[in-house]
């Protein structure tokens, strides 16, 4: 999961691909705009169009397992949504088809499809961000754009802590397994079986945080002289930020306007 190589290591600066000259904020704004577009209208054609755009972006950058995992996460839920809304949606009127005497309604299925499409738009556009930026790139960029090192640290160090914690957890779990545990039946028993793994892990993690906090202060992270590492140059980032933010405001405004007029 988090140990994915694109997330952990910076991309070596050999030859930069087209998606590497787009800055991270532009990519995030792009996710926002795509989401807002998807929410602008329940038109299914629009949704399919957006999904196509996002899929093409992914195909022309790089595909990796992260996106597929995220998709797998949601596909199951989308299927249950189709079933529940297809059967019980409150505006259901027209029977589309029946299976074993159970009727599925057109309205509910369309509603669920629309919701599912929105979810897919968000996942696919976010996938583009996930596969094309590295943690260190984001960290450097955020500090460059004026965020304090503290804020950048909080946001980014999570990505480093997680693989470390997962390893620690496996170690503790293995140690527990060696000791042998009984199969648990009730929820309380199961929760109790979690404790011998969780408590040492939590204490170890918090201990590490204490050590790290002390060390960061000793190493002068809040020294006012700290120089910001210059990261790579991006193309047209200012213009892209302005236009994407403008589009977002426009979409929100339009949505509010139609809502008011609709009432």
């Amino acid at each position: 999961m988090m140990t994915d190589q694109t997330l952990i290591s910076g991309t070596p600066q050999v030859k930069r691909k087209w998606y590497q000259v787009i800055d991270p904020i532009t990519k995030l704004l792009f996710i926002l705009d795509m989401t807002l577009l998807s929410f602008a209208s329940p038109n299914l054609l629009l949704q399919v169009g957006l999904i196509l755009v996002a899929t093409l972006l992914l195909l022309f950058s790089k595909l990796n397992s992260t996106t597929f995992k995220a998709l797998g996460f949601s596909l199951f839920l989308i299927v249950t949504m189709l079933i529940i809304q297809g059967l019980f949606y409150s505006h259901n009127q027209t029977v589309l088809f029946s299976v074993l005497g159970i009727s599925f309604y057109k309205e509910g299925l369309i509603y669920a499809t629309m919701l599912g499409c929105r979810v897919l738009v968000i996942i696919l556009t976010s996938g583009f961000f996930m596969v094309t930026t590295s943690i260190s790139e984001n960290a450097a960029y955020l500090e460059q754009s004026g965020l304090s090192y503290k804020t950048v640290y909080v946001l980014m160090s999570v990505c480093y802590i997680l693989p470390e914690m997962m390893r620690n957890m496996r170690k503790i779990q293995q140690a527990q397994k060696v000791r042998g545990t009984n199969p648990q039946k009730t929820l309380i028993q199961k929760l109790k079986s979690v404790l011998p793994v969780l408590i040492p892990l939590v204490i170890k993690t918090l201990d590490q945080s204490m050590a790290r906090s002390i060390s960061l202060q000793l190493r002068g992270f809040d020294n006012p002289n700290r120089t910001v590492k210059t990261s790579q140059q991006y193309h047209l980032s200012r213009m892209l930020h302005i236009s994407l933010t403008g589009l977002a405001i426009l979409l929100i405004g339009w949505k509010i306007w139609t809502k008011i007029n609709g009432l």
Binding site: K150, Y153, M169, T205, S213, L216, F221
Partner: peptide
Amino acid sequence: LSAATMTLIPAAVGINYVAKAL
């Protein structure tokens, strides 16, 4: 945001992840 809180937050997020995974 004190230096202690600054390192506590990532740890908390990590604990969330691990607890969920467990």
